[in-house]
Each structure stands twice: as C-alpha cells, then as structure tokens.
C-alpha cells in the first residue's frame, strides 16, 4: 500500500464516517425524542396512578380526623355517615377529645403505653444482646439447647400460650406493669436473641481476644468492646420490638387488671363497653392514638424502613 492509496482510503473513511455520523445523529435524535416522549407519558401515568392510590390510602385516616370534630347527632351509630363533610352545624370543637379522654382514661393509657414500651424495649435489648453474645461465644451443649429453645419460641403463635400465660401471671402476681414487662422480655427474647446472635457471629473474635489479653474481664469486654459494635443491630431490634409492644393488644388485655389500660385497650373501651358506642369519642381517641406513631415514623423513617427490610430477611 503506498501513501496515495492510504490517503484515499482515509478520505473515503472520513467521508463515510461523516455521513454515518449524520445518519446516526439523526436516528439518535429521533429515537431519543420518541423514547423520551413515551417515557415521559409512561412516567406521568405512573405518577397519576400512584397519587390516586396514595389519596385512597389516606381517605380512612382523613375521615377519622374529620369525624372526630363532629357532634354526636351528626354521627349516629351505624348509619354510614362517615363521608359527609363537616359544616357549621355539625362542628363540635374539641369536645369529643375532652370528653373521650376523660371517659376512657386516655391520659393514663398514654402514660402506661409509653412506660411499658420504653422500659420493656430497653430491658429486652440490654438483656438479650448480652445473652446472645454469651451463647455465640461459649459453645457447650447447654448453650446450644438454650439457643434452640429461643429459636423454637419464634414459631409458636401467641394463642398457644395465652391461656396458661394469663393463668400463670395471675397466680404469680404478675398482673402489674412490672409483670407485663417481664412477660414481654420473656416472650420477645426468642427473636431478639436470634437477631443479635446472627450479628455477633459476624464480629471477628480477635478484637475481643485482644481486649481480654489487655486485662478486661468479660463484663468490661462486653460493654467496652462488643456493645459499641452492636449499635446498628440494636437500632433495628429496638424498632421492631417497639412496633410490636406499642401496638400489642392481647397480652395487656389478658394480664393487666381492668383499671390499668394501654392505648389499644382504651380505644376498645370507646366501643360498646357500656352498651353504647360513642363514635365521636372513638374517632377522637383514634386520632390521639395515631399521632405518636406518625411522629415516631417521621422522626426515624430511615431506620424503620431499613429495620423492616433487615428484620424480614432474618425472621
């Protein structure tokens, strides 16, 4: 091949690529605009569908909020007037809130729910994380029996133990808030130990051994070395247990005496416990029950969503 030929070939190539380039650009523009337009349409349709669905999702809650401000005569029991918009005549101010709270003892129910949830979750996490570390690090027959006992308890539905648990707690004098916390710790231990164990297994042993060689006893090792590493899983477990205990209805219903209420029990008390359902009160109490949950959710949404995804994979 001589220089002349080479030049010609390059010229041809350059021309060709120029044309090709033009053709390609044209195609790309056409394709892009077409694709973009169709993507834009598809996306807008998706957003519209999602918006409608989100509105439908919120309607029941919106209806409850609206109805909580209606007068009693505007809310006859079982007449299906939940969607009638509120007006001047049917507006009742905060009366449903005031009267309802007094009637069902909502103030003390809120206090009890907070107290039980916070104490139970703290005790549960504190104790079960220690237990899980011990069970993973000490390998004997006994520890594996205990570990499998905990794992087994996760598959047992509450209905299986509720009758004997309530009889037993009555006989042992556990019909108090302290007793209820003890029951939560015992019944929740299975899942907590299981989740903590899974995490402890992934912590390298060398760090703990180094601490031990430096003269830490196991308690110091646990609190100074292991515990700080457990923080992420602790957040996950705490969120899952908080959701369970805060919303739990049956266990407190079965074990607490009737004068100590939690929020779900107080809500139930608005309906028919005296023969009449006070719908206005019920609606107002429902709003009060939702508020702490919404605040909790908006405050730690990231952790909750991560915790749920992680908890599902393990459980």
């Amino acid at each position: 091949m001589n220089d002349n030929e080479r030049e010609q070939i390059e010229k041809l190539k350059a021309e060709e690529s120029q044309y090709e380039g033009k053709r390609e650009v044209g195609e790309i523009v056409e394709k892009r605009f077409g694709a973009r337009a169709s993507k834009l349409i598809a996306d807008s349709v998706a957003v519209i569908i999602l918006t409608l669905l989100a509105v439908a999702f919120m309607i029941p809650i919106a209806a409850v909020v609206m109805n909580s401000f209606k007068t009693k005569s505007a809310l006859p029991a079982g007449k299906g007037k939940a969607f009638e918009l509120i007006n001047k005549d049917t507006y009742n101010g905060l009366n449903n809130y005031k009267d309802g709270m007094k009637a069902v003892g909502m103030t003390s129910a809120i206090k009890n729910s907070f107290l039980i949830t916070i104490i139970a979750v703290i005790v549960l996490i504190f104790l079960t994380s220690m237990t899980a570390w011990y069970l993973v690090r000490v390998k004997t027959k006994m520890t594996s029996v205990i570990y499998y006992g905990f794992v087994f308890s996760m598959i047992v539905p509450f209905q299986m133990v509720m009758c004997s648990m309530s009889l037993l707690s009555y006989n042992l004098g556990l019909a108090t808030i302290e007793g209820l916390v003890l029951l939560y710790v015992g019944f929740g231990a299975g899942m907590c130990v299981f989740m903590f164990s899974g995490f402890v297994k992934s912590i390298p042993l060398e760090i703990e051994e180094a601490a031990m060689i430096d003269g830490c006893n196991p308690i110091q090792t646990y609190f100074r070395v292991v515990l700080p590493m457990l923080k992420p899983i602790m957040v996950t477990v705490a969120i899952l247990e908080t959701m369970w205990i805060w919303n739990d209805y049956l266990l407190p219903k079965l074990t607490l005496p009737t004068d100590i209420k939690t929020i779900p029990i107080a809500i139930e008390a608005c309906t028919g416990s005296h023969g009449v359902t006070e719908i206005g009160w019920l609606m107002a109490m429902l709003v009060i029950a939702i508020i702490p949950i919404v605040i909790f959710y908006l405050a730690c949404q990231k952790h909750i969503i991560r915790g749920v995804a992680a908890g599902a994979v393990k459980g």
């Binding site: 079960t128 237990t131 006992g149 905990f150 509720m162 004997s164 231990a189």
Partner: peptide
C-alpha cells in the same frame, strides 16, 4: 433472660 423466658414461654 432465661428466667423471663421460662416464666413467659417455657412453662406456659
């Protein structure tokens, strides 16, 4: 933990 577990789960 074990005591709470026995009272709340194992015995029931």
């Amino acid at each position: 933990t074990l005591i709470a577990f026995i009272i709340a789960f194992v015995i029931p």
